[in-house]
Each structure stands twice: as structure tokens, then as C-alpha cells.
Write a protein that binds this DNA or RNA. Structure first.
Lengths: 237, 237, 237, 237
DNA sequence: TATGAATGAGAATTCATTCAT
DNA sequence: AATGAATGAATTCTCATTCAT
């Protein structure tokens, strides 16, 4: 009759407790002792659940990304219009900015000690990214993978850039601008539907995986996109 | 005082040689010995020119921030059309991707140990960012500062994200998409200038240094934007 | 007190199961967890039966010393000729080489942490050695204690040396050589009894327990020693 | 102009200083800190010269064996008769018993953490053993490799056994006995030269590599062997 | 000025032992 | 009795920094 502990569950609990310290200071700047202290266990316990600092870190990356997808989903699932979802998404971003910054920094920290090849092969990393991309696709109803990645780049850039440009840039203002650009872009696409288009030498700019789905969704998107909704409390300057 | 000149000069030479290693691995992950080795000197020499690792890092940040982004200018100054400039800009980005990643990573590394307030006050950081923003404005002839920052966010996000998403995202494809979005966005703006506003050419939203250049460029932009040009050797997927 | 019987019995069972791991890796190199795993219990159980690692080790030494060398007796008791006994003895040695190595290693491990004086006084150790010497005397019918110890040194050296010289040395080949040397030596002794001595059958040099056996055997020895018999399957190189 | 230190030379100096501590306590029982303290340097310095504890240990094994061969050679080289050499050899053994025990223990310690296969492949180990065997061959003028190994087994057994049997066994007495056995054995070989022998079905017990050399040397050996010389200060009991 | 050997505090990790269940 | 989770001191190893040359 051992001490009754659900190993898996407790492991996850530890992970979520670890996140703050590790992400804040950075993988290399934080020590296992510091982590253990902040989490409230001994280093031995940490090593009881994770074979090494690196492994703890890797598991943390996977764990946090998973959590995120869930949160985004649950926050936006009930919303009807895409523009609403976008708005709520950026609201969440602004609200928990530090958290998302930490998370992105963690992925950078992690990836930085790998070679490009290793990054491409690393299951945790690729799984996390894949999950996030899928999350965005579902939440926003976009199925142009290139557009999804565009959003990813933009959002991560926005988060990270705010770390070193400070208040020069603002989430609501940038969100609003993104909304406008999306609207314009999608509208233009509809006007000149490049894919099943008839205009002869206009090359199809992006090959879209799931055509059927995409067609309807994008139409919906351009109509619904209500830029104003994206601007939060802050007014545009 | 020829000696001092030599000393200073050599210090800068060392700094520029340090850049790559430190940026690549990160301040905390790289050791002074590794730096010394890559630079080709002894640790003693490093300590002869820099009082500490931290100081070396700070000086390096300053050094990197100084010599910024003027390559963009020189590469694009002679180009007439904005789309050309965008294309060449992203070409440069792809070509020297690692360098730009390193630059951004350094600023992140540095800013990370500062509070938001400190970031806002830090002259080195703000000066560098200011310079970059001005650079983009000049080069592309955009005077909407929000749009400039949008581009900054996007570009930095693209660069950094590639570090952890690996080859999932590609510079040329994303550049092409950005081109299309810009085109659509600017076109829509021209059609219905500044959202609820009616007064057409009223406010010069941001003060642009190089007026002459700016004047015509923005008009041209929407017409000229030739998305295809942005797609480099790679085909869109 | 049936519980106590069970407890004691199980303790011994645990000891015998511990033997292999501990002897193989060495007291200092093996961990309690490794021991527990190989034995198939938890560390908690180990500590339930033994107050500490050190105590476990000491009890193990005692245990191993106790149950010593009687296999030799039982295997060789029925054999008439000495050469046969030698042959069978070395066969047993080769067969259970690892076991004997482990036994010797344990005694080394144990003795190593004692001073020479302590070794001389330690009853467990001396008892075990005494028993082994007596065993050899009985088995081979040798009553020259110096010769018995010579054999002990040789056998232990052979066992241990194989641990670090590897396959350079082989039990059958060395056994054969030993047989030849013994034969030559005993023959020479008979021819010129005890070096400068003249009195032929004078002193019974060492007290031998089993006289009956001894009496005839030594005479036989030199005649019978049939070297070839000692060479096992392996040919001499 | 660095601090002037002959890296190689100092490494060897460190090795020889390390020997005592490591051999005495055993590889696993001694800590790097203890070693450093006893040697009189910092742990950092130890790691400056040796990449790991294991490597230090391995180099030590090689180093010490090399030293030994030298010592044996230099001590016996000037002696004419083989029996003299044997005598002096055992004198050296008795004189520096602890040292040789330590050395043998070290090899055991080292080999113990390897598998049999690894032992067979390990260059340091095999090199050391090979060197020692060659040393004995040259010193004693024996070229029957099996006999050389017999001596190795016996000597190592004698050394190690004394660790746990204590004073029961004595180097001089055993050395004397070995002398007698060798004499008897070699004499018997000469009487019935099994190799180029004429006696028909007498099987050649040992196949000797270098026949020519061996033949003369062994003849010399049996004549010269003066057993009495081997008994040191101690009388036979 | 330049070197790299030397240092030792501190990092990651291990492990004997305890103890709640 | 039995388990194995938890502990933290101790271990191996690292690294910024100093300093003799």
C-alpha cells in the first residue's frame, strides 16, 4: 500500500506549477533548485517525476501548448461569428499577455538549443505547433494553412516584440489593423476567386488543402468581419 | 593616443565576432570559453577587453542595435516601385535570415531581464527600434506608423517562429501572402479612406522624414503590388 | 513464534538474492534501488529487513562466508584419486566461475574497509578462510598448510585476474599447468624429503582432520597426477 | 605568455599523486573532492586535466602499470641469475606490498564496472596486462606465456588474499614454495622435454610460442633456481 | 598585452533513508 | 508487512573569473 498518488496527475500538476518560474527566467537562467523551491517540493521529487531538467522542459512545452489550445477553443467555441472569435481571441491575448509571452519564450528557449534539423524532427515541438495551427483553424474557421501561419507569425511577433519595443505597439490597435487587413484580403479574394477562377493566367497563389470547407468559410469570414469589434478598450491613435 | 584607438577598434572587432555565438546559443547558454574559442582568443583576452560576461553582453546589444537596418536602405533605395522594395526586402531577409534572427534574439535576451518600464526607458533599445521603424517607413514609403509596426511584428514573428516551427513556414510564401494582404488593404483604404472619416486628404498621420519619397509611393503601392514578384524561387505550396 | 521464523527465513532468502548484484557491482557501486529491483522488492522492504545498506552488506558477508565450499567436498568426496579431485575441483570452478568470483569479491570488498589487524581478528573472515583451507586439505588430502595456501592464492588469483585480464587466461589451461607443477613438486619432495632434513617420515607437519583419507592420498598424488585429465574441452594454446 | 606548465608532465604528476587515495579507498568510495584535497589542487584543476572521474581512473590504471613494469625491470635488470631476479622480485613485492595491493585493487575496481567483452576490448586494461606480462617474461627470462600467467595469477592472488586472510599467508614463505615448485617443474620438463621430445605418446602439455628462445632460457632457469634464496628474512614455519 | 592554468561557488543529478499509506 | 513517494545531503561536473607568467 504505497502512498497514494496518481503519478500522471501529479506530474501534470508539477508541470503547470513549473511553468511560471521556467518561462519567466528562461530555461538556462533558472536552476532546478529554484524550480523546486517555487513549486514547493524537493529537487529529489522533481527528479522523481522528470528524468532531467531538459526533459522537464520538453514536457512543459508540450503540456502548455496543449492547455492553450483548450483554452482558446473553450473561450471561442460558443461564438457564432468569426469576427467575434477573432476579437475574443485577441482579448484573451491582451488579458493574459504575459502568460502567452512566457509560453512563446519557452518554445524559443527550447528550440534554440536544437539544430534546425532537430527542430523539424522533434515530436514535442512539432506536435505543439501542429496543435496550435489546428486550434486556430477550427476557432477561426480558416483553412488556408498559409493564412493560419501568417496569423501565427503575426501574433507571436506581436507578443515578443512588445518585450523589447515596449509600449510602442499595442495589442488592440494591431488587432484592429489585422482585422481590417483580413477583411480587405478576404473580400478581394472573393471578388477574384483565384482558385476555381476562370481568369486564365492568374496563378493560384495558395494551394488550399480542403477546398470545400474553405470556400464556404471564407465567404462567411469576409462578411462577418467587423473590424470595429476588434478594437478593444483602447482607441486607435 | 594611438593605443586607445587600437584598443577601441579591437574591442569592436571582438564584439562583432562575439555576436554570432552569443545570439545563437543565448546569453545564458553560452560560456565565456565557447565565446573565446569561436572568436579565436583566450578567455583572458576577453576579460582584458570586457570586465564581465554581462558587460560584454550589454556592449554587444548596444553594438548590434547601432549598426542596424541600414542595409535595407542601401539595398532598396534605388528601386522605384514599392512592391519591388518589398520583394527585395524579403529577399534580403531570406538571404541573411540567421543574422536577423540573431539580432532579434539578442534584443529579446536583453529585454527579458528588464521590466516593461525599463524597456520603455532604455535608450539603446528604443533607439534601435525607432531606427528600424524609420527605416521601414523610408524604404517602403509607408507613413501609417501602425502599419509599420504591423510589418515589424510580422517580420520578427516570421523570423523567430521559424526557429521553433522549423520548415513549416517559409519566408517567400509568407512574403507573398503579406503582399496580397497589403495590396487588398491599401486598395480598400483608398476606396473608403480612413474608416468613418469623410475628409479625404486631411491628416498626415505620421511625420515621415523623407517626404519626397513618401509622397508618390503610397499611391503607387496599391497599383504596383505585384504579388507574384514576392514569391522567390520557392513555389507556393 | 511462527512470525519470527518466517521473518528470519525471508531475511535469509533476501540475502541470498542480494548476493549476486552486490558482489557483481561492488558495495559502493550498487544502489539500494538496484538491489531492490533485482531482488524484486521495494526499497522499503529492504529497509524493513535490514537497518541500513551497510548492515545488509555485513550480514551478506557473514551469510556468504557461512555456506562456503562444502560443494567442493560433496562433489569430490566419492573420488578416489587426487588428480581426479583436482580435475573435478577445477571443473566446478570453471562451471560456477562467476559465483566464486562474487564470493571472493565480497570478501575483498569487506576486508578493504578494515585494517590488517581487524582482518586478523575478524571472526567471520577468519572462520570462512579456515573453513576453506580445511576443505582443500580434506578434498585433496594435502597436509602441507603452505601448499594449501599456495593453492588458495593461485585459485583466487586465477578467479580475480580473469576479471581484468579477460580471456587472456583460461581456467583449464592454468589448471593443467598447476597439475604438472604439483606433480613435479611432490615427486621432488618424495625423492628428497624436506630440504636439508634427513629424517624421513618424521613430522606430521599439519594436523589433518580426516586422517584416514590423508594417509594414502599424498603417496598416490605424485604417481597419479595425470595432467591431461585437467585439461578440459579447451586445448592448450 | 601563459602560465608555464608542461601539461603532459603535470598530468602525470597529478596521476601519481592521485594513486594513493583512489587505490586505498577504491574508485567508488572516493570522491573527486577528496582526491583533489589529498592531491592539493581544486576540483576544477582535476577536471582541467581529466575530463571525468572515470577517465582519470582509466588513465591512472594505465599509468601505474607502466610505472610498475619500469620498476621491476630496473630493479632486476642488472641481476644475472633468474633465481636472483625472482628473489628480488618478491622482495620488492613484500617491501611495497600495500602499493601493489592497491594497484591490483584498482584494476579490479576498474574492470568491475565493465562487462567481460568490454574488458577484452579495453585498450588501457589490455595494454597494461600485456605490458606486465612482457615485463615478467623479460625479467625472469620465461617465455612460456602460460607459465607467465600462472605467476601473475599466483602473485595477484597472494597480494589480494592477504587482504582478507590477513597474516595467515606470508609472502616470503609462499615465494619460497613457488621457487621450489618452479625448480621441480622446470627440472621435470628438462628431464622429459615434452616439446621436441622423442618419447612417443607423451602429449605436449603446453604449446610454447617462441621455441628457440624458450629452450635455452628454461634450461638456465632450472639450474639457477636456488630456492633458499627466495626465503627472505622470515623462516619457513 | 595575451595566455590558459587555477579556483571554488554553484549547477545538475544521485541515493540512502524515512514515512504516510 | 509492504510500498514507493519524498527528502536533502552529497556527488560529479561546470564556468565565470582571477592571476602568474
Amino acid at each position: 500500500m504505497p502512498k497514494i498518488v496518481d503519478h500522471e496527475e501529479y506530474r501534470k500538476e508539477l508541470l503547470s506549477k513549473c511553468f511560471e518560474v521556467i518561462a519567466e527566467k528562461g530555461y538556462n537562467a533558472v536552476t532546478m533548485r529554484q524550480i523546486a523551491q517555487r513549486v514547493g517540493v524537493s529537487t529529489g521529487t522533481l527528479y522523481h517525476y522528470f528524468p532531467s531538467k531538459e526533459s522537464l522542459f520538453e514536457q512543459l512545452v508540450g503540456f502548455v501548448c496543449e492547455q492553450d489550445s483548450f483554452e482558446f477553443m473553450s473561450r471561442t467555441a460558443h461564438l457564432e461569428s468569426v469576427s467575434e472569435r477573432l476579437r475574443v481571441g485577441f482579448e484573451l491575448l491582451a488579458e493574459r499577455e504575459e502568460y502567452f509571452q512566457h509560453q512563446t519564450l519557452m518554445m524559443l528557449d527550447f528550440a534554440r538549443q536544437l539544430s534546425l534539423e532537430e527542430v523539424n524532427c522533434n515530436e514535442t515541438l512539432q506536435g505543439s505547433v501542429e496543435g496550435t495551427e489546428q486550434g486556430i483553424m477550427h476557432c477561426l474557421g480558416i483553412d488556408d494553412i498559409e493564412l493560419v501561419r501568417f496569423l501565427g507569425n503575426f501574433v507571436d511577433g506581436l507578443l515578443l516584440r512588445r518585450l523589447y519595443v515596449g509600449d510602442r505597439t499595442s495589442i488592440p490597435r494591431q488587432a484592429a489593423l489585422l482585422g481590417e487587413m483580413l477583411q480587405a484580403y478576404l473580400a478581394s479574394k472573393q471578388a477574384a476567386p483565384t482558385e476555381p477562377s476562370v481568369e486564365p493566367p492568374v496563378e493560384p497563389p495558395v494551394e488550399i488543402p480542403d477546398q470545400a470547407l474553405k470556400q464556404t468559410l471564407e465567404k462567411k469570414l469576409s462578411k462577418e468581419l467587423d473590424t470595429a469589434a476588434l478594437v478593444g478598450q483602447e482607441e486607435r491613435n
